[in-house]
């Protein structure tokens, strides 16, 4: 489904950040990427989504065998890539509900479908809102406007629930969450986990992985994946940290 092959990417000033990332995510799989600060985890999500602050120097990213690096940001999203931001920004004045509807209509236009009807949209919105236990008053504000950190993360998963992506890249979705918010966000992610969708979780802590069990865990260090394993690897990383893992030669 998603195939990242020898991906190298750099900042605008050519400072290399990703130095040959390889990752294969099949439909239905949940992968977790862990690693020390500055390893390139957030960069990987931004490069995949097409953030203009980075440029790919070599490699390819295939979604269902199509190289998405040729697509612009919106086309990648409409093709099925969803990034849950580590720090979702506030956009005052852009109504949350209108924004969600525009995003969904953009995707439908990309798929050659008509705009969604009022009743269908309300149904989808209502289901997503209930799943994330979000009050209507949040949705009637500007995008993330005045939201707490936890509410912003819930809003990200709500967007995922509405847009139904093929691949969801969730960048530190657990950071800043209290226990209840972590439970709600995890419940949302698990509800959206299905046989057609791939999910990539970026996290520093094992606690998210206690709620959302990954099929694979990878360690990203100095811009490349240096170790992969099953869910037991999280226990080992929690106990021993990252220093014991080889891969500093990059």
């Amino acid at each position: 489904m998603l195939s990242i092959k020898n991906l190298h990417a750099a900042l605008e000033d050519n400072t290399p950040i990703l130095r040959g990332v390889n990752l294969e995510v099949k439909p239905g799989e949940v992968h977790a990427i862990m690693g020390p600060n500055g390893a390139g985890k957030s960069t990987l999500s931004k490069v995949i989504s097409g953030h203009p602050a980075y440029h790919v120097t070599s490699g390819e990213v295939l979604l269902q065998n199509k190289n998405i690096l040729d697509l612009d940001i919106a086309e990648r999203a409409n093709a099925g890539i969803f990034i849950s931001m580590q720090y979702p920004i506030e956009i005052p004045g852009v109504n949350n509900i209108e924004f969600l509807r525009m995003a969904l209509d953009s995707k439908r236009a990309f798929q050659g479908l008509e705009k969604i009807s009022d009743s269908e949209f309300q149904k989808i919105l209502s289901q997503a809102r209930d799943l994330l236990e979000m009050d209507n008053r949040y949705l009637e504000r500007g995008v993330n406007e005045g939201f707490s950190g936890g509410e912003k993360k819930r809003n990200e998963i709500l967007q995922m629930a509405i847009l139904q992506p093929k691949i969801a890249f969730l960048d530190e979705t657990d950071s800043g969450l209290d226990i209840d918010a972590l439970r709600i966000v995890s419940k949302g992610i698990n509800a959206l986990r299905n046989a057609e969708r791939g999910i990539i979780l970026v996290t520093h802590y094992k606690r998210l992985l206690d709620y959302v069990k990954p099929d694979y865990i990878h360690v990203l260090r100095k811009g490349k994946i240096v170790l992969s394993g099953n869910s037991e690897l999280a226990e080992e990383l929690e106990a021993k940290g990252y220093d014991w893992i080889p891969g500093d030669e990059a």
Binding site: A77, I91, M102, K107
Partner: peptide, 20 residues
């Protein structure tokens, strides 16, 4: 970037931001 990452193309995203 945030708006575009949700599938809203650049021209429309700028229109939305201008409007707000």
């Amino acid at each position: 970037f945030y708006l575009e990452s949700r599938g809203i193309e650049e021209t429309q995203a700028k229109r939305i931001l201008t409007r707000s």
